[in-house]
Write a protein that binds this DNA or RNA. Structure first.
Lengths: 218, 218
DNA sequence: ATAATGAGTGAGTGCTCACTCATTATAACA
DNA sequence: TGTTATAATGAGTGAGCACTCACTCATTAT
């Protein structure tokens, strides 16, 4: 197993969602996720998948008409793994943590997001590279996620403005790229250590909030 | 041609570097870059490459011992395309633009970087996805680029501190992730329009510098 | 005029691929 | 238990793969 990750198992992360999938189907998807993330989609053969899933090659094609269909099935899984974490409306989080500054709330959200990415790293690594060459899948994912993210960033910015913690000069678009970018870069190159990540994220958000501050000098 | 990009040609971007490569070799690499970026490495056959390069399939193997070797040749090309842009020492840039605030200088650097990424998008798209499965290539690239980037970020921070534009609370590591992240996210999801990009980058750097300001309230 | 060269060729090679299907094992019900 | 329905199997299939090699022929040396 490369890069020290343990084997991914959908049941650990998405049990509620896949609980009435046939057992065989889950085994195929699990095997495929792990192989695709190790060697890539095209370099993985259906024979290998069947071996890893501990069944005959023919059985795969009872449950999936083509090899492509296995990959395509992963996209809704990925969306489902990520969306609910984003979905918990930010206003709720703000309500829950009513006293705290918006910057701390953002820091919590970012850390949460980094953990999602880490937990579903293999699923991401299976699907994302192939998205580059499959526009249909790509749009399925970005159209279902990007506007929502922008919406929630907007909400938090608005909340921050009401509380006079954030000035009017900050656009949702730039803010989104700023946050998304940090998450992306940190999940690729950042520290794997949880405590270090917490420190880094807090320092990052601290700086960001100072830049966004309502009373920042022009 | 997907996503509207024109065909990539090494000679446009790296003529000085490849000028004494044999003509056939350049044609193979060009064909491969364009095909890999469209369909991926594994999904591209050597027969297709030969067709696109307008030569017999056998001729490819006179110049490259294996298909893998074509990909491996692209890594130094990619490093060479990106490194010199980073290499122009930041102190030089600061000296050249002596009067301007560090934030503006950063904005210029970031825009420059976005253009490099845009110009070499196909080369990046050919190589980056395969890096995920090839640790050797991955290390070749990150070890040759990341420490250098951190070094230059450090330099600019130091310069900013001397000028009292940046406070002592900003670490090179977080700053690097912040800048790298924005570049990454913006090159993936950001506006393709040059003028809009300039505006977004300036707004981003404006916010960042306010956050980094020496006199930011704690 | 003749000989030597080697870049270029593309049919051929053994092999692997995604996918099929006749056969066998298991389950369901009488 | 016997009969039927469903599930699982893995050898088989043609297509396509990366790579080879015997051969061609324009160019150069003699």
């Amino acid at each position: 197993m490369p890069n020290g990750d343990e084997n991914y198992d959908i049941l650990t992360y998405l049990e509620d969602y896949v609980k009435d999938y046939p057992d065989k189907e889950i085994r195929v998807i699990n095997a495929a996720i792990n192989l695709f993330s190790e060697k890539g989609f095209s370099a993985t053969s259906t024979k290998e998948i069947s071996k890893r899933a501990d069944m005959a090659e023919g059985t795969i094609f009872r449950y999936f008409p083509t090899k492509d269909a296995i990959l395509e099935r992963m996209v809704p899984l990925l969306i489902h793994a990520i969306k609910p974490k984003l979905e918990k409306p930010v206003k709720d989080i703000i309500a829950e943590r009513a006293g705290e500054p918006v910057g701390d709330i953002f820091a919590t959200i970012i850390l949460d997001r980094l953990n999602i990415i880490r937990g579903n790293g293999r699923l991401l690594k299976s699907v994302l590279p192939e998205l580059m060459y499959r526009e249909a899948l790509q749009q399925q994912l970005t159209q279902s996620l990007l506007p929502m993210i922008r919406g929630y960033v907007s909400q938090v910015l608005e909340e921050g403005r009401k509380r006079a913690e954030i000035g009017p000069h900050v656009s949702a678009n730039t803010a989104m790229h700023q946050l998304l970018g940090f998450i992306l870069a940190y999940s690729l190159f950042g520290s794997k250590d949880e405590a270090q990540a917490k420190k880094d994220v807090e320092e990052f958000m601290d700086g960001v909030m100072k830049g966004w501050a309502a009373n920042a000098q022009d």
